[in-house]
Every structure is written in C-alpha cells, then in structure tokens.
C-alpha cells in the first residue's frame, strides 16, 4: 500500500528538541483526524523514543535523530525513529519493564509505554551502529466521506 502522505525530520539530539519532535509528529498525524486520546498516545510514544536517542544513544555527545512518518488511507500511521548512537546489546532485556541502564532518575518504562500506547513496536539495534524503533497505530477513520455516508443511511 502506498502512503497518502509522508514526512521526515532530522535534528540534533539536544533535550530541548524533545517537545519539538512530539509536537511536529502530532501536527502531521492530525490530518487523519485522530481523537485527543489517540493523539496523546502518539505524542507520548514519540517522546519516549526520541528521549532514548538523546539520553542513551548519544549519551555525552550530540548526534542526529531521524524521524520518518507515513500516513495511510485506512488510518494506519507508521513512525520510525532512528539514531546512529551506541546501540543496544540485548534488545529483549532492554524492552523489559523497569529495565534501565541509567539508574537514579529513570524508571525503565519507555519501551513499555511505547508498546502499550501503540499497536505495534519493533526495535532493531546493533552495537556501535545504532537503533531503529518502528511503531504502528491505526486510528479510527472518521473522515468526511464516512460521515456523509452515515447521514445518507439515516
């Protein structure tokens, strides 16, 4: 299936870009007319993935964070967040709730949040090369066409 729209972003891994990244993705997916709850889930998941690039992938350095987002006619959204940072040695372990290598102020819940707020979460990583997080969510289509169709039925 061909996406009906797509966009990509690249920005430095400074923490001030966390709010920019989730707001930019939210503004883009708004075209599909998601509910407030769906939008809030997507913003939170994006914030988790982007923060991981900033906090873990590029710890003590600044690298580039890449986001690409595709929208499909049937309401499906795919979001890919990628870094060229340190990579993850054991992805399965990293995805366990409460697992964190940062200690102290981190809860170890980022992946658990992405998993429960989105429909699909896929993580691939290679040490020294980087990490790719892919997330899908299909939102209920409440397009003008279907609203019209419904009105015609009544």
């Amino acid at each position: 299936m061909k996406p009906m729209n797509e966009m990509s972003l690249a920005f430095p891994s400074s923490s001030s870009n966390e709010s920019f990244a989730r707001a930019a993705v939210a503004a883009f997916v708004a075209q599909l007319d998601p509910t407030i709850d769906e939008l809030s889930d997507i913003k939170t998941a994006v914030s988790e993935a982007v923060t991981n690039c900033i906090v873990h992938a590029y710890r003590n350095t600044i690298g580039t964070v890449y986001i690409s987002c595709k929208l499909y006619e049937n309401g499906k959204i795919t979001i890919r967040i990628r870094d060229k940072g340190c990579g993850i040695e054991d992805v399965k372990q990293a995805m366990q709730p409460l697992f964190t290598t940062a200690g102290g102020e981190r809860a170890g819940l980022g992946f658990a949040v992405m998993e429960s707020f989105m429909d699909v979460l896929r993580v691939t990583s290679k040490v020294g090369v980087g990490t790719v997080v892919t997330m899908h969510k299909t939102i209920e289509r409440r397009s003008k066409v279907s609203v019209k169709g419904k009105m015609a039925e009544e």
């Binding site: 989730r22 809030s40 913003k43 939170t44 914030s47 988790e48 102020e105 981190r106 819940l109 949040v113």
Partner: peptide
C-alpha cells in the same frame, strides 16, 4: 503532558 521521565521524577 507527561512521559516516563515524569514517572522517574516521582520515583526519585
């Protein structure tokens, strides 16, 4: 808005 950083903040 709050992500898991807020949970870490509460835990801390």
């Amino acid at each position: 808005f709050m992500d898991s950083s807020g949970i870490g903040l509460i835990m801390g």
